[in-house]
Simulated scan of single mutants.
Amino acid sequence: MSRKKLMEEMTWTELREAMASADTALIPTGSVEVEGPHLPLAVDSIVAMEVARRVADATEGVIVAPLFNVTYSSWHGAFSGTLSLTMPTLMTVMSQICRDLCRHGFKRLFFINSHIGNDASIWNTANDLTAEGLARVGMVSIWPLASEMGQHMSELKENSFLHAGEIMTSVVMAIRPDLVDMSQAVTEYLKPKSEGYQPLLSSKSKVGGRVISIYHTSEELTQSGVMGNPSQASADKGEMIIGNMVEYISQAVDEFRQVPLPPGIGA
């Protein structure tokens, strides 16, 4: 029995053997985009892949599919190095690859997603595959999960996730410290546009005390690509965050694998 968990590192015979006891593909989805002057462009991809690896090590019956690294990040396009597919292209590519995974025998697909720009494509793909009876599909969003868990971590100064802030920087310091240059780290927060208009993200703002969607390009909101304060980040905090996420996601995947398959898929 092959002990490999990454599909791309297996031979086709090893994959066939592994799938005798694995029906679930973990699909890491990231991005290549601005993450401030102190973090690499591939933060989302690096983190999604590492979390997927750790979840696979902790969970039976799963195999890690290849990473979606270049995805949809058009609103960050003014910053050097940001790469983006169009949304229709990403939806087409994601659908085709997922259909191939189903054709090869995976009955469950679970996205480990670290980039909000992937949400719509995953939603579209999941609905189509489910309606057609090809697979049961699930997803966990890494950074919202980290933000929720951060509310209960007294070690953090920024308890909520902010782009390139303390949580993200800490996680990358734990995974790839060689790619973090804290001498270049800057603090930058999103500034109010008017007395009643406070941007929260590129796609969300608070207007009159309530959250609505007002869409901005990143250069309208930040000069550095940072939307928080990375100065208090540390590898120890990052390892704690990752450990908490992996523990929860592993449990969630176990539960996901018990959810009945859509009609038309054999048990």
Rank of each mutant, 00 (worst) to 15 (best):
V186R: 01
S183L: 12
M173V: 02
L190C: 10
D178E: 12
Q184L: 14
V186Y: 01
K193P: 00
L145W: 02
S183M: 12
G150L: 11
S141D: 13
E166C: 10
L145Y: 11
R176I: 15
N159K: 15
M149H: 10
D178K: 14
A164G: 07
T169I: 08
V186S: 00
L179N: 02
H152A: 08
E195C: 04
S154M: 06
M182Y: 05
A174L: 13
Q198H: 15
H152R: 07
A135Y: 02
E155P: 01
T169G: 12
P192E: 01
V186P: 01
I142G: 02
A135C: 06
L190R: 06
A174C: 11
L145S: 13
R136D: 02
V186A: 00
S147N: 13
T187E: 01
K191N: 15
Y189R: 15
S170G: 12
I175T: 03
K191S: 15
H152S: 07
A135T: 01
N159F: 14
D181M: 08
E158C: 06
L134R: 04
L179D: 05
G138L: 06
G196R: 09
M182Q: 03
E188Q: 13
V171T: 07
T169V: 13
P192Y: 05
S160G: 15
K157S: 06
E195Y: 09
Q151T: 09
G165C: 07
M139N: 03
G138A: 07
V186K: 03
K157I: 00
W143D: 04
V180M: 10
W143N: 03
Q198W: 15
A135S: 02
Y197S: 11
L145P: 08
T187H: 00
P144W: 10
V137P: 09
L145G: 07
R136V: 06
I175P: 06
K157Q: 05
E158N: 04
Q151Y: 14
E195L: 14
